[in-house]
Nucleic acid binder design. Structure first.
Ligand SMILES: [Mn+2]
Ligand SMILES: [Mn+2]
Ligand SMILES: [Mn+2]
Ligand SMILES: [Mn+2]
Lengths: 220, 220
DNA sequence: GTTTATTTTTAGGTAAATCTAAAAATTATT
DNA sequence: AATAATTTTTAGATTTACCTAAAAATAAAC
C-alpha cells in the first residue's frame, strides 16, 4: 500500500515516461512542485519498494509493479473526472484538482462500482482513455489538429493540455469533444488555422491547434 | 485548513461531546486508536489553532470554530454514505470506512453539488441526521426501542451502533430503516423483546433493542 | 487524611516528507 | 582534453504525527 505522496510520484513518473524512457530527477521535481533533493529521497524509497528501477544520476524507470500501481491511479483519476462532469455537472476545466484528491481513496470495491455506475466509460472529459481494471487501455488513434491538411476533417476527441485557461478558451470557441471540424485554410503568416465547425468559420492560433486531438475521417 | 488527522480528532471530540461536556484525553485516545500522550500533543495544537478550549487535566471542549469544522466533516461523511448506498449499491454496513476517507476531500463545490445530486437528503443510511450547509440539523425525535411499552408501535428510523456485525444482524432480522414495528411482549427472564414486524413475530435481545431508534406513534 | 489507583502530561525519540547549502557526477562548450 | 554549466546527490535540519517510559496531577479507597 502506497502513501498519497508515493502515489503522486508514481503517476507523474508514469506520465513523464511517455516522453522519455529514463525519467530525470529535475523533471519529477518540476511536476511535483518540489526540490530535486526531495525527489532523490523519494526515488530511493520507491526503488527500495521495487516500484522503480534506479541508477544514480541516470534517472528512473517504472518496474512492472510500479507501472501497475500508476495505471491504477490514472484509472481512478479519470473515472472520478467522469463522475464529476456527468453526474455533478462540473465543467471540464473544474475537475482536475478534486480528482487529484479523489484518486487516492483506497477501496477496490468503490472504484469498480463507480465504473459500473458511470456505464464503464472508455474516456474521461478530456478525451484521455480510461484503463480497465486490469490496466489495459483501449487503442486510440489521435492526430493533432495542427497536422491536418486543408480539406481534412474529423471529430474532436481529446486535448493534450488540461489548463483551465485553455479549456475555457476552447469552450468559448465551441470546440468541445465530439464536435465535427474541417480545415479550411492555414495562414502562412502566423500558422493559425481556419476551421469550419458547426457551420461557422473560425480562426484558431497555432498554439491552440497543437493541443487539439482529432480522430480523422481522412481527406474530403 | 486542517489536516486529515486534525479533522479526525475534531470529529471524535464532537461525538464525545454529546455524552460529556468536557472530553477526556483517554476517551479520545481510545476512539483514535492511539496513545494518550499523542492526544495531549494534538490537543495542544488544536488549542493553539483556536479549535478547542483546553485546561490541563480537565479535558477539552470545542470552540464555536471547532464545532463548525466538526459538523462540516460530519456533513460530508453522511452525504458520502448516502451516495454509496443510494447510487453505488453499497450495503449500510459497508459504507463507513470508505466515507471515513471521502469526508476529507476538500472542495466546497463538490459537497454542495453532491448534496443536490442526492436530492438534499435529511438523514444518512443509519438514520443519522445530515446538517445543512450552515451546520443546522433538522430536529429529530427518537426513542430507543428498549424504552417502548407493550402495545407501543413506531417506525425504525435509526441505529445507535454502526458496527458491521450489528447492521448485518438487523438486516437478517428484517429490521431495516422505515419498517413498522410493534411491541408484543417483554421477557422478564432476559429482557429480550418480542416484536411484530412485517406480520411476523420475532424476538430480539435486550442488547439489540437498546440500539434501535424508533419514531413512535405512541400507544396503540 | 493518607495511601492507592487512575488519568494526564512531560521528556526524549522515531519515521515520513520536506527543505537549504554544499559536494559530486555528468554533460556541454571551447 | 580542460573548463564551464547543468544535473544530481549528500549532509544536516525541520515539521507532523506518532511512540515509550517516567513524572505529575487528580480521583478513589481505605
Ligand atoms: Mn493526487
Ligand atoms: Mn482528465
Ligand atoms: Mn476520517
Ligand atoms: Mn452513518
Amino acid at each position: 500500500m502506497q502513501s498519497f505522496t508515493e502515489e503522486n510520484y508514481l503517476k507523474i513518473i508514469y506520465h513523464l515516461s511517455e516522453k522519455t524512457a529514463n525519467v530525470q530527477t529535475n523533471a519529477i521535481a518540476e511536476q511535483m512542485q518540489t526540490k530535486p533533493a526531495s525527489v532523490t529521497d523519494m526515488i530511493k524509497k520507491l526503488a527500495d519498494k521495487g516500484l522503480v528501477d534506479y541508477v544514480k544520476y541516470q534517472g528512473v524507470t517504472l518496474t512492472e509493479k510500479g507501472k501497475q500501481a500508476a495505471v491504477d491511479i490514472v484509472r481512478k483519476h479519470r473515472l472520478w473526472e467522469v463522475f464529476l462532469v456527468s453526474k455533478l455537472n462540473f465543467k471540464w476545466d473544474e475537475v482536475h484538482d478534486v480528482a487529484e484528491e479523489l484518486e487516492h481513496i483506497k477501496s477496490v470495491d468503490l472504484i469498480e462500482r463507480l465504473d459500473e455506475f458511470l456505464g464503464f466509460p472508455k474516456s474521461d472529459p478530456h478525451g484521455d482513455p480510461i484503463p480497465d481494471k486490469n490496466g489495459r487501455f483501449a487503442k486510440t488513434q489521435f492526430i493533432k489538429l495542427i497536422e491536418l491538411k486543408i480539406g481534412d476533417g474529423g471529430t474532436i476527441t481529446g486535448v493534450s493540455q488540461h489548463s483551465s485557461a485553455f479549456l475555457k478558451h476552447l469552450e468559448k470557441l465551441g470546440l468541445t469533444l465530439g464536435k465535427q471540424i474541417q480545415i479550411s485554410d492555414v495562414t502562412d503568416f502566423d500558422g493559425s488555422v481556419e476551421i469550419l465547425v458547426a457551420n461557422k468559420q473560425i480562426n484558431i492560433s497555432r498554439e491552440v491547434a497543437k493541443h487539439i486531438l482529432i480522430s480523422s475521417n481522412g481527406k474530403n
